[in-house]
Amino acid sequence: MKRLLPMQVQMGELESCEIKLRDNPQRRKEKVFIGCGAGFGGDRPLAALKLLYRVEKLDYLVLECLAERTLADRYQIMMSGGAGFDPRVTEWMTLLLPVSVEKGVCIITNMGAMDPFGAQKAILDVANSLALDIIVSVVKEIPLSKSGTSGPDEESSIKKGGVSTYLGAAPIVQCLEKYEPHVIVTSRVADAALFLGPMVYELGWNWNDFEQLAQGCLAGHLLECGCQLTGGYFMHPGDEYRNLSFERLLDLSLPYAEIRFDGGICLAKADGSGGALDSSTCTEQLLYEVGDPSAYITPDVVINIRDVFFSPLSNDKILCIGAKPSDIPVPEKLLQLFPKGCGWKGWGEISYGGYGCVKRAEAAIFL
């Protein structure tokens, strides 16, 4: 059984996390509200701040800012003497912490990248400058030496050659149980698991509650890319089904979800906001980065999304129904990324073609 290590260093503690069934998990809430404050490394913190202000019931705000490319970038920068974490964490926390602490919203973010302990220190420095007394927990995989020991510093990432395992939700749950932190900063955690962790903790789920875990992972998968769910890709002049006006895109809301203890999901955007949240935008995100829809693999559960459907409640809310565990509901192994001292550099660009392509390209530059 793989051992993962969540840590909270402010108190000098180091805790191992063994993935096993939870002992008598307690249901703390009937439903939990989780928002997505960022869907990629270049997202803008003002949008997350707007979500905090416009949605009264948020319990958690997830900042998903890490991908394979950004993780590799941080490793290269760290090897060259720079920061192994996302340096924008200071900008984000300066803006968000005063509001999140006041409203009791816990922030969970993977901006720790290769050095979440460095990110933790940066967050605590921000809190100190704002006269805020907070707890910041860290989730990170640390390789153990032959003696079974390791230290909480970025050297562990260097010693293991930059290898990163896609961790699941278990260490996040343990951080919440043990420390009740204001912020959890992680290394590489599967995107959906960032959202699943607080669901498991608040709703009293266990690791063999596969029906609920499947719905929870589905909610995380739909939320993880932020405004992709709420119409960010739906400005297509001439397409009657995907032709959001420029004005509606200017007031695009990040998404959030209400998740019930029985696995019921209601996806939402801020009341009266722009963008779009409907069956089309949800289906587009549902299929994003999915290989086999009958076996979408996450570290916590393998899910079948073939029968998922969406039922609109209003312009701002939609029910999400039908995820279930796959025939083999637990993955056999976890995915690892590791850098190699060879390869190629790539160059990418985004092109626009077809009807209205110039108008769409100009809008993309402005947005």
Rank of each mutant, 00 (worst) to 15 (best):
P237F: 07
W347Q: 14
F366D: 08
G220M: 12
I108H: 04
G238E: 06
V9K: 11
C65H: 01
P116S: 12
K324L: 06
V101R: 13
K57W: 03
Y352H: 15
F309S: 08
K103Y: 11
C217G: 01
K121M: 06
A257E: 01
D115G: 07
E180C: 09
K50H: 12
K103W: 06
K160T: 15
V32E: 00
K340G: 05
K31T: 13
D251L: 07
V62E: 02
L167S: 14
M11Q: 15
I172K: 02
A323S: 10
G353V: 14
R3L: 11
P329S: 10
A323G: 05
L223A: 08
K324M: 08
C65D: 00
V183Q: 04
V136R: 05
I303A: 06
K20D: 10
M235I: 00
S314K: 08
M235N: 15
I184K: 06
P98F: 07
V185F: 03
K31Y: 10
A48P: 04
Y355W: 04
G274C: 13
S311Q: 12
I305M: 12
S280G: 00
R69F: 11
L203F: 04
G348P: 00
A323R: 03
L287V: 14
K20L: 15
M235P: 00
V105E: 05
R22N: 02
P143T: 11
S156L: 04
L267G: 02
G216F: 01
S157C: 13
V200L: 12
G35P: 02
H236V: 14
L254Q: 08
Y179W: 13
S150A: 15
E240C: 03
P45S: 14
Q215S: 09
A83H: 08
P116K: 14
V138H: 07
S314F: 05
I328S: 13
